[in-house]
């Protein structure tokens, strides 16, 4: 017994090191598990407060640019309104405003944005109190940003599309061939669309939009344009490099999308399976 105690005391530093190291590796691993990160995130009272305070200062410096973006968006919206007056059926517009009442939009401000790591997150200054919940989509007027992952009373955390664990359904604008949007962790302006079948007609510069297969994003949101594409090892699926319309390194204000019918659709799908 005495020897055991002596051993413990002599090696207390190494043991402490091992324990703490295991704790930090555990935190890392559970942070890698999608939707399961429970303990530490930037959507809490302290870090949210610090980020929103620093962002209050920073956002003054970019007011000009935000105004310009708003003007640009207003212009697009006005164009749509004027085309509606012609009483012709509106084609699918490459814009976030062409959806009927199935989706509810809320605004939020990005108070923290990462893009240089492999797993990037954003923090928004709105939370449960403003009606935001897990699995709501997040977009800007130019493209998609990510999916809400954790919600706190006043802040929420978003899994950026620049995250190795993000998989979003997307498709070609011209045809209905679809694939999954992933990121290889290299360039914050380029994401990859994988598992697109070989039959799909591809051309550089073609537009990629969100597919309607997930309940998170409406169909038809602009994502980016094709930069180049290669066949994968099995020679049957394309891997496409996509240049994002959105500048992920510079996001000020975003829209959070709620799918109003989500629960209903999920119930229906569940009854189908039974």
């Amino acid at each position: 017994m005495q020897q055991i105690f002596n051993f413990l005391i002599r090696n207390k530093n190494s043991i402490l090191f091992l324990i703490l190291f295991v704790v930090s590796v555990f935190l890392t691993v559970q942070n890698h598990a999608f939707h399961k990160s429970r303990f530490l995130s930037s959507a809490n009272f302290v870090t949210g407060g610090v980020y929103s305070w620093s962002n209050d200062v920073n956002s003054y410096l970019s007011l000009d640019e935000y105004n310009e973006r708003l003007l640009e968006e207003n212009k697009q919206l006005r164009n749509i309104i004027s085309s509606i007056r012609d009483s012709l059926p509106v084609d699918q517009q490459l814009d976030s405003t062409s959806f009927e009442g199935d989706y509810l939009f809320r605004t939020a401000r990005v108070i923290n944005n990462n893009f240089s790591k492999v797993d990037n997150y954003l923090t928004l200054n709105r939370g449960e109190r403003s009606g935001i919940q897990q699995e709501y989509g997040v977009i800007t007027s130019q493209g998609i940003v990510g999916i809400v992952d954790r919600v706190n009373e006043n802040y929420s955390r978003v899994i950026s599309i620049l995250n190795s664990r993000s998989r979003i359904n997307a498709q070609l604008n011209n045809t209905n061939h679809f694939g999954s949007l992933v990121w290889d962790g290299k360039d914050p302006n380029i994401v990859q669309l994988i598992d697109v079948p070989r039959q799909a007609p591809l051309q550089k510069g073609d537009t990629i939009i969100t597919g309607g297969r997930s309940l998170i994003f409406p169909k038809g949101l602009p994502v980016g344009s094709i930069q180049d594409f290669t066949l994968d090892q099995t020679q049957s699926y394309y891997t496409i490099n996509i240049k994002l319309f959105n500048d992920m390194t510079n996001i000020g204000y975003v829209y959070v999308i709620e799918n109003v019918n989500k629960e209903e659709i999920e119930n229906l799908q569940e009854t189908n399976e039974q």
Partner: peptide, 22 residues
């Protein structure tokens, strides 16, 4: 460890800074 965890909470990076500091 505490220093690393403080950075991790802000960065949303799990425990990587904590492990590195340790």
């Amino acid at each position: 460890f505490l220093l690393g965890v403080s950075i991790d909470v802000f960065e949303d990076s799990g425990g990587i800074n904590a492990a590195a500091c340790l």
